[in-house]
Simulated scan of single mutants.
Amino acid sequence: MSTQPSTEREYRQGPSLGTVIWGAVVVALAALIVAGRLGWFAVDPGMVAVVLLLVGGLGLVVGGAVAAARGRRGPAGVRSPEERAEP
């Protein structure tokens, strides 16, 4: 075992942002359609699908932008190897 810091990139464990967002979209769509079929309220499935896909897409874009910005700085604001190489 070495005490030297690893140069390999550490990967986070757990589900990705895309997996969580698409799962939430599918569950919300299914719940609204089931509630409409049970007669709890009137639901237009087409409109619900469009709104959920729009919200899910925006979540993916914003989450990707945040992850990209965080990735440039590295964990806790540590400079990337490219930034360290600059004079």
Rank of each mutant, 00 (worst) to 15 (best):
V55P: 01
G39V: 12
V55M: 12
A31D: 00
G36V: 10
P45V: 08
L32E: 07
A28L: 14
L32F: 11
G18L: 03
W22L: 13
L60P: 01
A67S: 14
L58W: 09
G63R: 06
L58F: 14
V26Y: 03
V25A: 10
V27H: 00
A42G: 01
R70F: 04
R73C: 00
G56T: 13
A68T: 08
E10I: 14
I21A: 04
G57E: 07
L32V: 02
F41Q: 09
A42I: 10
A67H: 08
R72M: 07
Q4C: 04
V62S: 06
A69I: 08
W22T: 12
T7S: 13
R79E: 11
R37N: 09
L54R: 05
G39A: 07
A35Q: 05
G39M: 03
L54Y: 05
A69D: 06
S80P: 00
S16C: 01
T3E: 13
G63M: 03
P87D: 09
G71Q: 13
P5V: 05
A28S: 11
Y11M: 10
R70N: 13
P45Q: 00
V26D: 13
A24V: 14
A30E: 03
A76T: 12
I33A: 11
P75G: 05
T7P: 03
D44P: 06
P87H: 12
V66W: 02
V51W: 11
E86G: 05
M1W: 04
R37Q: 12
P87Q: 09
R12F: 14
A68Y: 10
V20F: 00
A67V: 07
E10Y: 10
R12D: 13
R73F: 09
R72G: 11
P87I: 05
L17Q: 04
Y11W: 13
